[in-house]
Design a protein around this nucleic acid. Structure first.
Length: 116
DNA sequence: CATTTGACTGCGT
DNA sequence: AACGCAGCCAAAT
């Protein structure tokens, strides 16, 4: 469906769609189930090193995206979402690894890291 | 336009 | 493995 004009009712913007935001969501959507990518990897694919910027996008716009497939460089799930992410991992069969101190588990990056 | 913020990363302790 | 610190990036305020 054609997206009509980009103009919105004055003073109201339906979605702050920006190039970077859209790109991040697109990359995240490309991550296959059972695999994961680090914030830094997603940023690198976009030609940037803004791992934090990617996290920022996920926090604000990743609500409807497979955010659990984007994890930290250490294999830890998104901060504050370990419990919810774990449910998705077990459902998708993402290779996990037992951990003592963390949230009780940790994603096996060596086996689950997505390779475009 | 300047400052703050944050679902990050790497290194040292 | 846990904690702290500095560096980096884009969006939000």
């Amino acid at each position: 469906m054609a997206r009509a004009l980009r103009e919105q009712p004055a003073g109201r913007r339906p979605e702050p769609v920006e190039g970077f935001v859209d790109a991040v969501l697109a990359v995240v959507a490309d991550i296959p189930a059972g695999s994961v990518a680090t914030y830094g990897d997603v940023a690198a694919i976009l030609g940037s090193r803004g791992a934090r910027a990617v996290g920022q996008v996920m926090a604000r716009y990743g609500a409807d995206a497979p955010w659990w497939r984007v994890i930290r460089a250490d294999g830890h799930p998104p901060a504050g979402h370990a419990e919810r992410a774990r449910a998705h991992y077990e459902l998708e069969g993402t290779p996990l690894r037992p951990s003592a101190g963390d949230d009780g588990y940790r994603v096996d990056l060596a086996a689950a890291r997505w390779r475009p």
